[in-house]
Design a protein around this nucleic acid. Structure first.
Lengths: 210, 210, 210, 210
DNA sequence: CATGAATGAGCATTCATTCAT
DNA sequence: GATGAATGAATGCTCATTCAT
């Protein structure tokens, strides 16, 4: 955001900085934060381990940076969808699409965010925690509005369904790229369809819970 | 009780063994395998760290033991459901129920299995890998049979839906116990309903993916 | 020495004691004192590690016991030879024979004594040190007498030759049993011959070292 | 000085590396490999124990390095002597000299090689094993040639004599430096004399073994 | 006699981090 | 910018030893 080349502005802005943080994301994604040594990150970059500390002040800071890029935009996009026009169905479809899209070019960042965010230092953990909750809130609001409008099945437990949808989507990074023929588009379409049909206020369907 | 002069019977059979392995599960679940020190496990038990090694030969063995208990019965129950009688809808509901139930009394084991199984030593990793694949296969078979019988929507991508359902269910351990009022029964009912309605061959539903 | 079955006489006298000390000798010989775990000794015996402590009070005591049996008789036999009748040549031959003979049935004890005696606790180390020095003295006395009597080459450095002969003989335990066709008799004969001929006061021999 | 951005050039090339490996040799020689703690090595150097690992990757690697320096040149020198001109007697004398010389400035390395080489990791153990066997071969070849040429006593068991000579020489490191007045030159001369006279084809000597 | 259970001390090794250059 | 050298603090693990049974 800051355009002026300051002297080490908080958050690290060096020439190779993006490269470095990407390497960290990769290694954290592969081995987990605690399983990843700074040496392994340096190896990926072909530099010496000590040199990493020119780019970040601590391993924890690297994790913070990675996690940050793993959530950013998520919420903004979702918020725009939530606030925009459209039926609940259309919004759910859009939310699912939007939630899966970062997988294409940010899989490692997302994976690290999903799995390792609880290791963040207190302040950044709380920050991403708030983001997470805002995201959940957006999903839930869309669902609740859908129920109120009668578009979605009455009696829907919107909280649980939110968690179901997010769980469904958040599992994708773990296998995306290993399932042949599963493009983001296909996945999003299939997931959205499942969700929308599963939530729609319908007629006779499933003889009724238990 | 022991029939012969033993030599530490394979699989560790000590009086306090279950207690020890439970403590390991707890700590692994809380901090992750690499973030968990054997000292922390010992602290939970109120014994000295070295004493742990009377019960397992290595931290890795402890992980194996925990993961083992995290998967066992999963597949057997699912297989029984898959092979049993009932419509696809009934089976999906049963599978979801069965998949969530272990959360009640085995949450830590399941969490550890889900998150840390890739750290297992090669042989046990392959073993639990096979179990995972069998479980997925069972879900997928039920879905495919449902499609063939016309009960489920034609054109369903059964592989992706399997991953969706498992992702949905597998996310639950992460928040189960923190969501007030979300009993296993409620969660399972809601998830199953979502799945079944979302998959059913229906009438006019969602004007059709993109 | 003590015939009466006392209550744990110093030096340990139990039914299986010889068996236990033999196992210790074997393991110490194979892996060295520090490389040998009490567990390994117990394994050889098929008993539990803790049970060993019924037979000896500490690992160091076991080493002492082994080393003791590794030297005992050595000196007595040598002393008898040194004090007995015969030419220097005959005595050297007898000493070499006598020094190699224990290899047949006590190889492990001798090996351990040779290699690990410096690890003994102070008092027993000094005791076996004294024995060693007495043994060397006996060799050296025989040589010196031989030189004085004119039987052995004048100018012989008896100290160095003693060390040479002992070095030669003491190396044998390391390879005895692995050299096909090398019986104790053959080895002793060949070594003795080499020594005697090499030491004899002769005629024209080697144009004379420096 | 370093030509390229390196990545720890194979074989460890650090400024203080020779110093470090020498300290390891000293401690291994004094206490044996298993009895030597890395702490003790660090103490000798006045650095922290962890710092050692900047210079070698493992205690085993340190042992390998020490043993390597303990054998290197031995074989080359011996081979040159074996292949060079001279009578068997001259060659034996030269071999003994050459075998004892490293004691002067490499006693610890040689001692460690002699006593601890069996603890080397498989591959380096086999490598030094091959070197040992080549050395023995050289001694033995010289002896056999001497027997064939009639210079050495017929019927000589060249294998056993090789082992005798090596045993004799290899014992020296254990007491060299503690025997007052025993310079390498004196020792070598005395040992060579003993060997040469003991092996020469002579007249009436020793009335004949058994 | 023998063992199961436990422990204290020590050990090799890893790793994030620092800092002078 | 980058690195070589070094370190403090842990960490997993081994092992001799003890002791109640």
């Amino acid at each position: 955001m800051s355009t002026v080349a300051t002297r080490r502005p908080a958050g690290t802005t060096h020439r190779r900085a993006p490269e470095i943080i990407e390497a960290a994301a990769r290694v954290f994604a592969e081995r987990g934060y605690h399983g990843a040594s700074t040496q392994a990150i340096a190896d990926v970059l072909g530099i010496r381990q000590a040199s990493l500390y020119y780019y970040f002040g601590s391993k924890e800071e690297a994790l913070t940076l990675v996690c940050m890029r793993g959530v950013e935009e998520f919420v903004e996009h979702a918020a725009a969808i939530g606030a925009g026009p459209g039926t609940a169905a259309e919004k759910v479809r859009a939310l699912v699409h939007s939630h899966l899209r970062p997988l294409v070019d940010r899989r490692d960042f997302v994976l690290v965010f999903l799995r390792e965010r609880h290791l963040l230092p207190d302040d950044s953990r709380r920050r991403v925690g708030r983001l997470s909750r805002r995201l959940e809130r957006i999903f839930q609001d869309v669902l609740e509005a859908g129920v109120r409008s009668g578009e979605l099945r009455p009696g829907l437990d919107c909280r649980l369904v939110t968690l179901a949808l997010l769980g469904m989507c958040n599992a994708a990074p773990a296998w995306y790229g290993k399932e042949p023929g599963a493009s983001i588009e296909r996945i999003a379409a299939e997931f959205a369809r499942l969700a929308i049909d599963g939530l729609a206020a319908g007629r006779s369907r499933s003889k009724g819970g238990r």
